[in-house]
Computed example of a mutant assay.
Amino acid sequence: MMLSFRDTTADDLAVVMDIHRAAFPKDTEARLTRDLLVDPTAAPRLSLLALDGDDAGATALGHILFTATHVADAPGPLRACVLAPLGVRPEAQGRGVGGALIRAGLDRLRGDGLDLVVLAGHPGYYPRFGFRPAFPLGLVPPIAFPPEYADAWMVCILRPDLPAEAIRGHVTWAETFSRPEYAPDPPPVEA
């Protein structure tokens, strides 16, 4: 499959929402994406579509969004963002679209001089793209993580020359993430 990538525009909102509605069982990610795209505290942001070709009639198969974060208490300035959400249409899942979107986004951010990307995600999936647990480095997330899910708080260091001791502090993200309707579901309780 030949993929191309492009930045989204305001005209793409319906397509972006449709991708996330198809990719997830609830409407939460679609609404979160919509709200992050207009949240001034999420800027600057990188919003990319993956297309099944490079002609004008190409179908959008996936979407990824990176939004601004701030790392307080860091020993020096860190340029950082958060990856959330990433969605791929069900018929395109398992074909490398999500991974290609992640790589394209990380390459762009690296080229833009960002230092790191954080996320709350599946620890079995994201390490193949350079993500690793963030707690051991001293990056404190903006939400509480139960100890059994601590490895889901991850970071990808975009600058290989960035010393490990420079990667610590309290992460804050766009105000949209703090709205009650976007609070993460509690982990399942074992009976």
Score class of each variant (00 low, 15 high):
P146H: 08
P146E: 12
G105L: 08
H170I: 07
G53K: 04
V171E: 01
I102K: 12
L32M: 09
K26G: 12
A150I: 06
L48T: 04
K26Y: 05
Y125A: 08
V140R: 13
D54V: 09
P160H: 14
P136H: 06
T176A: 03
P85M: 10
G94S: 09
R168W: 02
A166P: 14
A43Q: 15
D73M: 02
P188L: 05
M2Y: 09
A174G: 06
P123W: 03
G169H: 04
K26F: 10
A100L: 08
G62I: 01
R128Y: 01
E148C: 04
A23H: 02
G99N: 13
G62E: 07
P186M: 06
G121M: 14
L13F: 10
A191H: 04
L32K: 07
I143Q: 12
V16A: 11
A174W: 01
A92E: 06
G96M: 05
L49I: 00
A144V: 11
H20C: 05
L37Q: 14
G111N: 08
R168A: 12
P147Q: 12
L86N: 13
A174K: 08
V155H: 01
P141S: 08
P127Q: 13
A42Q: 07
V15T: 15
P85W: 07
F177D: 00
K26T: 15
A166F: 10
I167L: 14
A74H: 09
R31A: 10
A152V: 04
H122N: 15
A191S: 08
D54Q: 08
L83V: 09
T69A: 05
A56S: 14
M1N: 11
V118E: 12
V97C: 12
V38K: 12
L78W: 02
V189Q: 15
A30R: 02
V117I: 09
A14D: 15
R45P: 01
P180S: 11
R128M: 03
M17P: 00
G76I: 07
D54R: 14
D52N: 15
F145L: 14
P187K: 09
I19N: 03
D52K: 07
R34D: 10
F5R: 11
A23S: 09
R31Y: 04
F135K: 08
D12L: 00
L36A: 04
A56Q: 13
M1W: 03
A100E: 15
V117M: 05
P180Q: 05
R89C: 01
P160C: 07
V71E: 02
L106E: 14
P123H: 10
A80K: 03
A84D: 11
F177R: 04
P163Y: 02
F131H: 07
F129M: 11
